[in-house]
Design a protein around this nucleic acid. Structure first.
Lengths: 231, 231
DNA sequence: CAAATAGTGTCTTTAAGACACTATGCC
DNA sequence: GGCATAGTGTCTTAAAGACACTATTTG
């Protein structure tokens, strides 16, 4: 029953946050911003904020808008993770936070991030030594787990890559996400089966033999495979 | 950034709804309740309502509480589906609804439902001919799709079954969810591999040879398989 | 030529699909 | 016995893992 007569409820505060991932130097990174106000002032937190009903057609817009403020670009992939709620998560009172997870290519987003000092890419290991606000460390772990799962059965990790990329780069991204080696052969087979990438008529140097460049075909959907990579 | 100083935003109305599934007579059914007030008075809608910050420790509690009001039992399985938001979904204004999907065994829930006339099990085909409130038809389709996906790679459909059940019943549930036949052999292999069910020392008649009864082992987690059933 | 990375060939392994077969209960 | 459902055996098929092999580029 969406909505009732009796809307004179204490309505909880509703916010939207995002866990934006990318892979830099074969390491999985998360975008965090430094809090400028209490509580948790000076701590690092997920980018996000209040849904503005006048400009955000939906919560997706809120997530994109807040991410754009920090990175100056829209992430290549955005999906809802979970909605967290309760009294204990924020000292100011009962809160409800819709969290997204998102993927972007490092090159596009990083130019802008490097110019500001209240936002940075944080590697997963760094999370243990940085002060993280609210329950955001827990949320990031949850998001990482979900991304890992998604990497096992879909092509979504390509959205951590720039428009043109090589199989070797894709392999690095997958290995950063999964935390374990992946066979080149398996990746090639999946690229073949998914049929959502096309070879670009261009090659790039990579330390050895020149590598083919690939890009995502226009207007393709996410493809799920019937079989996972092994855990 | 969960929360800010400036909480003087027009906060959207936040509600929690659930898509409760079960399988009755080899048909997938959804629990709907008849709306008693405007808008969409007399139409059928998903059970749900406002989060009560005084009694709901989290949104999960809201979903469970509202479902218990209608069925008198807690569903065996509950998971977040998606959060829907926007201006167009409710004529009264901008709304944000966290939707869960849930599974229950028909026998436990149905006794109570049959005593009230504002709640009933609706089969998926019936959705086209019943008047459905808000965007709930779309939400149910989304939930059904997700349940289907989940049935391909996990054991969650067992939560549509009573405590003790046979492989034949499990097969019926799977087939109702997937809308296509499934091999008994495949189910048996999965039960074996998942190792979360145990044979009960009891058999039940089923029209032919007596069937073994199974139950879920205590304190087991959801198991995901590395390979899907085929689409 | 050596080192490095790109890309192929192919054998093994795992788990599902298909389907024939046996088993057991009720009429 | 005959029907219906339970349950097994086993061959086929699909796709990942392992890994050796060839190809191409730079130094």
């Amino acid at each position: 029953m969406s909505g009732n007569k009796d809307s004179d409820f204490k309505n909880p505060l509703f916010t939207v946050d995002s866990v934006l991932f990318t892979v830099i130097d074969k390491e999985l990174k998360v975008l965090l911003v430094k809090r400028a106000s209490e509580p948790y002032i000076g701590c690092w937190a997920l980018p996000g904020g209040f849904l503005d009903i006048d400009i955000d057609h939906s919560a997706d817009m809120t997530a994109l808008r807040k991410l754009k403020e920090k990175t100056n670009v829209a992430p290549q992939y955005l999906e809802q993770l979970h909605t967290y709620s309760g009294l204990a998560r924020d000292p100011r009172g009962y809160s409800v936070t819709l969290v997204y997870y998102a993927l972007t290519s490092a090159v596009e987003a990083s130019t802008h991030i490097e110019t500001v000092d209240d936002a940075k890419w944080v590697s997963i290991e760094e999370l243990d030594i940085l002060p993280i606000a609210f329950d955001h460390k827990h949320i990031i772990e949850h998001a990482q787990q979900r991304l890992k799962q998604k990497a096992l059965y879909s092509m979504v990790p390509i959205y951590c890559l720039p428009e043109l990329f090589t199989i070797g780069q894709f392999k690095s991204v997958l290995e950063a996400i999964l935390g374990k080696p992946v066979q080149r052969k398996t990746i090639i087979r999946r690229i073949d089966a998914a049929d959502i990438l096309e070879k670009v008529d261009e090659k790039i140097k990579s330390g050895g033999r020149l590598a083919h460049l690939y890009k995502v075909k226009p207007n393709v959907d996410i493809v799920n495979f019937e079989r996972n990579l092994s855990y």
